[in-house]
Computed example of a mutant assay.
Amino acid sequence: MTYGVTSQTPTVYASWGVFANDEERLQADVDHALSQMELLHPHMERWMLTEDMPSDLQEAWKGYGLLEVGIWPLVSRERMIGAIVVGRTKPVSGRLTIETGTALMDSCAAQISLALDLILTGRIAEEASQRDLLTGLLNRRGLEVRLPQLVEECNDFGTHLVLGLIDMDELKQINDTHGHPMGDQALRQVADIISRNVSTGDIVARFGGDEFAVVLQSDWPDAISAMERIRQALQESGLSVSVGGAVWGIDGDSLEQCYVVADERLYECRQLAKADAAI
Rank of each mutant, 00 (worst) to 15 (best):
D29Q: 11
D276Q: 14
P54Q: 01
G17K: 00
R229W: 01
D251I: 06
A226Q: 11
L234H: 00
G87Q: 05
S55T: 10
F157Q: 15
R229N: 03
D251V: 05
Q271R: 14
E45H: 06
T50M: 13
A186S: 05
G17C: 00
L161W: 02
V86I: 13
P54I: 01
L161A: 02
V243S: 04
A191M: 01
I194E: 02
S218A: 13
N175F: 03
P91F: 09
K62A: 13
Y267W: 09
G249F: 07
L239T: 00
R231L: 00
A277K: 12
L118R: 14
A186Y: 00
D184T: 10
T97K: 03
P73C: 11
Q257K: 12
S107V: 04
I250D: 06
S55Y: 03
L134M: 14
L104M: 12
I203K: 07
L266R: 12
S129E: 09
D222I: 02
W61E: 08
R146L: 15
I194A: 01
A28S: 14
L216R: 05
L57R: 01
A83K: 10
R88M: 10
G252N: 08
A275E: 13
L66T: 02
E153V: 06
Q185T: 07
M1C: 08
S242V: 03
G101L: 14
R196S: 02
